[in-house]
Amino acid sequence: MSSLLEAQALNAFYGDFQALYEVELSINEGDVVAIVGANGAGKTTLLRSIAGLLKNDAHSIRFNGTPIGHYRADKVAKLGIALVPEGRQLFPSLSVEENLKLGATVGRKGHWSLHSVFELFPILKERRAVASTQLSGGQQQMVAIGRALMSNPDLIMFDEISLGLAPVIINSIYEQLPQVINQGTTAVIIEQDITRALSSASRVYCLQEGRVKLSGRTDELTRQQITQAYFGVAA
């Protein structure tokens, strides 16, 4: 299997503060990769670096072999990397439909269109003219996911996919996930719930204080190994 996305010796900074140290990461086509770690471990920074929201050394991130570490966010999006950001980040002045349409800005062709997103989340079709702020949290997450899918990405990244959502909503979002990923998309998921991360992902990376502490296939790692890498102490 070829490597779709690779990070090599990735260091990321916020001003003088270093958030990632020499991170190594490799994601194969069709993988579902979970990234776990405590608050402040650098999970979001890692996704922001890949998405181009943080500038990095060009060769520290490669997508299909192309160095993209230095790319601006809109250029990264055009290559086929989409981010479902933490806290949804919908545009309050725009309607649901306008939010979704913006996802198609990059003009990549594929399975996903307004029609197929409405098929995946029928409630959004009903509420398409409503301002995005008037939706429930779960519906907002659907818009954020739909908006990312509208770009027909090769790689979709979910930052804190279940943050602030009711358990029943989280279940229904996870139920839809296979449909999202089955369209030839590779996925990265940041999830606080380790059990859920392990059950839906094929590989897992555990970050601690900006470094990769543990990585491997989910079926080869023990729960204890992950807990230890997560907290940094034997639990």
Binding site: A51, Q89, F91, L102, T105
Partner: peptide, 18 residues
């Protein structure tokens, strides 16, 4: 629409390829 998106949230708009 893109302009309004930039005003609302610049980095979210950039992520979408604007």
């Amino acid at each position: 629409i893109a302009l309004t998106a930039i005003r609302d949230n610049e980095s979210a708009a950039a992520e979408l390829g604007v």
